[in-house]
Write a protein that binds this DNA or RNA. Structure first.
Lengths: 192, 192
DNA sequence: CCGATATTTCAGAAATTCCTGAAATGTCGG
DNA sequence: CCGACATTTCAGGAATTTCTGAAATATCGG
């Protein structure tokens, strides 16, 4: 691996973290490399930069594409595929959340739903089902919130984050002013 | 493994999902079993229920304790350690978020900080550092938000979620009424 | 259709992670 | 301190995942 020290450190770190994130080292490194590269890279360049096999890069790119974390950029007069990462980090965040939900949450939700349909055979099962219902309720609420938030464009999402928990304090005031808001700005009131 | 069908299905599912969550099958199964059990279980009971080795259970319990997802309950007149999961699912969510942040986010944040301190040697490194700065900014904002929200007690967190993205619409109204709110509720106005 | 180039597939080697049984260690009542 | 029981440690075998090189497939200009 021959890369500028700064880039190399970044790439190696992502390789290491990869395992904690459920992706393998090579995939993490490829992502990191594409992320900091000024221009799209082709597979051969990645091979040279990372010192891994061509086929490994091919598989890694395929996985990154499945995650929507690497996107092919066609370069004129060049048959080879070139790849970048989406450039808006907020978009990346959304993508990551979406994919992780799909892989890590949805299957559990569907299993829980199925198990909650069944009739418990005894007290032990009844208690288990009760606990499953609690978990199901939590996950449903989280995914509902997520579905709600994920459509926000970057700017609003950022300001929502910036507001953070202070929202709840604003909420305390909400009841006091909501009727007033409705009266003055019918358009925004309809949306709330 | 001899368990009521409902429990068994739940336990097996958590075992399968374990790998996607960065924990191993046994740990996932132990957690699931404790989660649905009406009473705390000791290691030997877990061995019987899951059909894995005693030492495996010992290691699994150790890991779950490190995650704060299994807590020892002392049972009078019994030398053996018994374990449960925290019972409030919202608390579990907080714990999970905290631990994942610690393992998956904090190390990256610290690497990024370090790399951003260094002086880039050329245009390529300068660009890389620029991208790292973007990522750093995003993560910082997320963790700030998280630190802000994590202290909320269950009830408020739930209502914050229930509100979801509708908050932003409320925000639009905020500017229009903020002076009014200030006049009526000085405390909440200071915070907005 | 051919030759040149690019990419993918895939069997098995390499690396890593998981799990077990045996031994070591810890803890308690007496 | 001893003996009974409970738990932890850990070396190495088992299982899984990752990676490679070779072969197969795809794509293009001519």
């Amino acid at each position: 691996m021959k890369l500028p020290p700064l880039v190399q450190a970044f790439v190696l770190h992502f390789g290491e973290m990869g395992s904690r994130w459920g992706i393998n080292r090579t995939v993490g490194q490829i992502y990191a490399l594409l992320y900091v590269s000024p221009d799209p890279l082709n597979a051969e360049q990645i091979v040279e930069a990372l010192g891994v096999s061509r086929s490994n890069v091919s598989m890694g790119l395929k996985e990154l594409q499945a995650w929507n974390l690497a996107i092919p950029k066609h370069i004129p007069d060049d048959r080879r595929d070139h790849f970048t990462t989406p450039d808006d980090v907020w978009q990346i965040l959304r993508t990551l959340a979406e994919e992780r939900k799909k892989r890590e949450v949805d299957p559990t939700l569907s299993v829980l739903r199925e198990l909650l349909m069944q009739t418990p055979g005894n007290a032990e099962e009844r208690h288990a089902q009760q606990r499953m219902a609690e978990m199901h309720g939590l996950i449903e609420q989280l995914t509902t919130w997520y579905d709600d938030v994920k459509r926000l464009e970057t700017e609003r999402l950022a300001s929502l984050l910036a507001l953070g928990a202070r929202v709840t304090r604003l909420l305390e005031a909400k009841d006091k002013v909501v009727g007033l808001v409705r009266g003055r700005t019918p358009a925004s009131a309809r949306e709330s």
